[in-house]
Amino acid sequence: MTLSPTTAPLPLDPERDVLIVVDVQPDFMPGGALPVSDGDAVLHPVNALLHRFGHAVATQDWHPADHLSFASQHPGNLPFGIVQLDYGDQIVWPDHCVQGTAGAALHPLLHSDRLRAVFRKGVRRAVDSYSGFVENDRRTPTGLEGYLRGTGARRVFVCGLATDFCVSATAIGAAERGFETWLVGDASRAIAAPEPAGGTSLDRAMAAMAAAGVGTTTSAALLG
């Protein structure tokens, strides 16, 4: 599926528009434990956006070393397979974003001094978390929703890694909670893995975001 972003300028409200930067961490970039192709290309547009928005937050994968989303915890299972956890199907991944490691840090070239808050996710051994709003058990909140409501946020703009997993889950979560939500397409990158039924994980994610009412824009439209 081709991204079809709205390129018309979108004037920003510094009081009620929030940028959500998803998982811009070394482990998701070339050379990392779970690299997204061209993932480091998000740094330039994300940093530009951080200096345009008056209000920005980030999410950060932050797993214990024995996290159950790791294939290493399931003998006989290879990365990218499916296992059953208490809350249902779970993709198992290479070990990544282990708490306290360099790969789990916010990327050193990210202008993180512009962030007002960072929400860590996947911190419990038995539950993974793609969305910045709720963990994969679909019950445990991260605190992001309460934070946004406390600030009076109206619109959110989501970017980062990876479009077809944590970025799309966060964008859909925002839309489901009543926020006007936009994906910043050029400030995000996808895994785009083949799907068993055809197409890719990016196709699936884009369709799901469109169905949830998420719009797609570009950094240029926001930077003016």
Rank of each mutant, 00 (worst) to 15 (best):
L3H: 08
S4G: 05
T6L: 13
A8C: 07
P9N: 07
D13C: 12
D13F: 10
E15M: 09
R16P: 04
I20K: 02
V21Y: 05
V21E: 07
Q25R: 10
D27N: 08
F28K: 09
M29S: 05
M29L: 13
P30Q: 02
A33F: 06
D40P: 00
V46N: 01
V46H: 05
N47Q: 12
L50Q: 03
H51S: 14
H51I: 02
H51N: 11
F53E: 08
F53C: 11
H55G: 07
A58V: 09
D61H: 12
W62Q: 01
P64D: 10
H67T: 13
L68R: 15
A71P: 09
H74S: 11
P75M: 11
F80M: 15
Y87W: 12
G88H: 06
G88W: 08
D89I: 03
V92S: 10
V92P: 10
P94A: 13
D95M: 07
Q99C: 09
A104E: 08
H107D: 15
L109Y: 05
L110E: 10
L110H: 13
L110Y: 13
L110P: 10
L110C: 08
H111K: 13
F119L: 06
K121I: 11
V123D: 00
R124I: 12
R124E: 14
V127E: 12
G132S: 04
V134H: 04
V134G: 06
D137F: 06
R138E: 14
P141N: 04
P141D: 07
T142A: 06
G143C: 08
Y147A: 00
L148P: 01
T151Q: 15
A153I: 01
R155A: 06
V156D: 04
V156T: 06
F157I: 01
V158H: 01
A162G: 01
T163K: 07
F165P: 01
V167H: 07
A171D: 04
E176H: 05
R177T: 05
G178C: 05
F179P: 00
F179D: 02
D186W: 05
S188W: 02
G199K: 10
G199T: 10
A205M: 13
A208R: 13
M209Y: 01
A211H: 04
A212K: 03
V214T: 03
V214S: 04
T216G: 00
T217Q: 11
T217A: 10
T217P: 07
A220C: 05
G224V: 07
